[in-house]
Design a protein around this nucleic acid. Structure first.
Lengths: 222, 222
DNA sequence: CTCCAATCGCAACCTGTGTTGCTTTTTGAG
DNA sequence: CTCAAAAAGCAACACAGGTTGCGATTGGAG
């Protein structure tokens, strides 16, 4: 066996040039981003880009995987509230600036591009999985009951960032992050994510009638 | 000088045909959706579509505005928890099936298409605004303190649905909706959404400063 | 019923994305 | 240094999305 791939000099140079160019163009927004322009800026022929990455989204995926390989320091301050706050601030940093653009672009491509969808899904599956440690530590510490649904809690914590980034397009500042963290902490402590109680919060009064549809408007019209 | 627009017979027929065709194609997913195909299915020339709607996203926007004009019965059961649960189930219904595809498509187009972004933003600004009533009612009822940030609470409630719809692509079932509602209720009661800052026990309600207009924020920084 | 403007259909055309076949350069083992 | 394979460059092309100009239809006021 001989002659496998060959990531030697030029190939590496082309690859680096393309990724750098893509990164540079990305800050001008996804709207301006196109394979041809990337190739042009990189001083490379567009066929090279298409052959190596297939797609614009392939290039973006490569960029994202650089972030994915960065080690994120999952907070472990010894207390749930501060851990959650640190985590929220971390998420915030990963959602603003360049990585934010990257996520936006890939998320936008996802509905039309299965590979892009896969990339996004995989990335956040991993990230969320790591973040669950914050909740699990609190469980181990006795701050939260055993069996707390860490995944659901992390989803609750992360979701508002996506809402602002992808839909509402409002600024994501530190105060916002802090408030989300506090909300997640409150939800966690309320026992909502405890499998034993089910979705019922059981705060005060259990006077709610057991009717399946307690409200008055149940409108099947559509 | 007369003759304004003319939404008479044929125009109306074309419009209806296009929207129906778009709706029909949408269920096969956004990936299959294109102006040319819509025109073809509608039995209409593509130029007609482009002239009237400019864009594929324009057509989608029209479809969405049909939903927007539907009256949504904001829950008012007399209790915060059940109101939130009803609301969450309502959101769930608006996120699954056809409207879900519609939202997905428009959100995906948004980063490249300012008009699409505007449509999505406007739609949810209105919807969220209506939903705030649930929180405000609870405030009026004394279940929550004056000045509770209804908007933030509704964002917290809605966000997880978007996360699942747009990035993680996981099923959005009723149990999920119920749990999110419970989490939002817990966060609300914890006082996280009070302007006073810091978690306070709810229900207390005495130290409310004499704000001139209850539940009205004059300057949401823009 | 008549007639004009609004609207639609049609066909040609422009543009940018992505593909293909082939040539040229580069790499790295022998 | 030599040379075969790998990768990049180049140019022509295919094709879908979108635009434009013009003639044909149609709606509705008079």
């Amino acid at each position: 066996m001989s002659a496998g791939q060959r990531p030697g000099g030029r190939s590496a140079r082309v690859r680096a040039a393309v990724l750098t160019a893509a990164r540079g163009l990305l800050v001008d927004g996804y709207a301006e981003l196109t394979v041809e322009r990337i190739a042009q800026v990189a001083g490379v022929n567009k066929t090279s880009v298409y052959r190596r990455w297939t797609d614009l989204e392939g290039v973006l995926g490569d960029l994202l995987s650089e972030y994915a390989s960065e080690v994120v320091p999952i907070p472990d301050t010894g207390e749930l509230d501060t851990d959650l706050e640190e985590l929220a601030l971390l998420i915030r940093r990963g959602m603003t600036g360049e990585p934010g653009e990257l996520i936006t672009a890939l998320a936008a491509a996802a509905p039309r591009n299965p590979r892009a969808a896969q990339i996004v899904r995989g990335f956040f599956a991993e990230r969320f999985g790591l973040a669950e440690a914050v909740v699990n530590h609190a469980v181990a510490r006795g701050e939260l009951p055993q069996g707390t649904d860490a995944r659901a809690a992390i989803e609750l914590l992360g979701a508002p960032f996506f809402l602002r980034l992808l839909v509402v397009n409002e600024p994501i500042d530190e105060e916002f992050a802090q408030r989300i963290a506090a909300a997640a902490a409150a939800a966690l402590r309320s026992g909502v994510f405890n499998p034993a109680r089910g979705p019922r919060p059981a705060m005060g009064t259990s006077a709610a009638p057991p009717a399946s549809r307690p409200g008055r408007q149940s409108d099947p019209s559509r």
